[in-house]
Design a protein around this nucleic acid. Structure first.
Lengths: 176, 176
DNA sequence: GTCTGATATGCAACTATGTGCATATCGATT
DNA sequence: AATCGATATGCACATAGTTGCATATCAGAC
């Protein structure tokens, strides 16, 4: 259900194609949601079938057609209903933690490799977040409340990522 | 796949029934993994079918039978293979963040309710984690390396939860 | 000239997880 | 006497997400 809600929100802010939304998932929404193109196109088509979206096909010379989606009145109502309803608590699932419970069977090389790789991924994630900050929130004090709200989410994304990285450093230092 | 791995790890540490594992998910593994009893029993049966586990049925007077699972040699090999293989990067999915991108359509009451409820859930989670700490890790300095490894995961679970709570406080204070 | 990556969309099969319902007993509460 | 929570297990159906494959063009690198 949450993918639907994310699509309603981003299309309400600005109509666009599946491909456009994929770009948003890689850029401005990188700290919010990610989905494969297969899942995305399928979901957009279903939402159109359910009357939440309308679709306008735009032909391009020498390129595939673009299918631009936007919200219908029903889509807007569905969005408002989702906003009014509290989210279900998300279950904790940390597969990496499980490996720490099998410490003696976890080869040292594999462990070092795993933690180092994860740390690099987190560092890359922070770079992506920094790019979002530069592009959208370069002057936080100047933002309106509704612009400042997404900025807060980016800040939390950064802090959670930093918390992970600091922890990896501590663990690595202790066991090396 | 990760549920399987978690089951291999916990059953390798100590054989037990599906119900036992459910209790572990609520207690000592609360910061690692959660699953419904339906999913759990089904997965245990499949793992037995795949030769990863053996099952010994123990009859009890006036109670349902207990089916005690433990790892086979194949199960142990599967665990070692999983430990050696790095985890795939997990996609970012934060449905709550999405609501912040629809700030103006998100009713104030619903927002306050949602953040307050989430904060209470996180506080409850910290209590659960504190109980784990008391039960298993009351003296971190006295732990062996393989006991200390799970302790590290609990510390990260705590810090991530605290980071979330601090953020909620900041957001609530700014918008109230 | 061929390969790679960007643009643009999708189907089909599979796996993982969630939801609703079902069964049976015990002890404690109302 | 009836209901509730703990003990103990499961089936069936539905939804969410992953993986493999497919199509078509253009620009730029090698």
């Amino acid at each position: 259900m949450s993918l639907r809600a994310v699509l309603l929100i981003t299309l309400q802010r600005e109509p666009g194609t599946g491909y456009d939304i994929l770009q948003r998932f890689k850029a401005g929404l990188a700290h919010v949601w990610q989905a494969s193109h297969q899942q995305l196109y399928r979901e957009l088509d279903r939402m159109r079938g359910d009357g939440l979206l309308t679709c306008e096909t735009v032909s391009q010379d020498e390129r595939p057609d673009r299918k631009i989606y936007q919200l219908t009145e029903i889509g807007l109502q569905a969005l408002d209903a989702w906003l009014a309803e509290p989210l279900a608590a998300s279950p904790v699932r940390q597969p990496l933690f499980a490996k720490f419970f099998a410490w003696e069977r976890w080869p040292t090389d594999a462990r070092r490799e795993e933690l180092t790789t994860l740390r690099e991924q987190l560092k890359q994630r922070l770079k992506t977040y920094a790019a979002i900050e530069r592009e959208w929130f370069s002057d936080p004090q100047a933002l309106t409340p509704s612009q400042r709200a997404p900025w807060h989410t980016l800040r939390l994304g950064q802090r959670l990522t930093e918390t992970w990285m600091e922890w990896i450093d501590e663990v690595q230092e202790e066991v090396e």
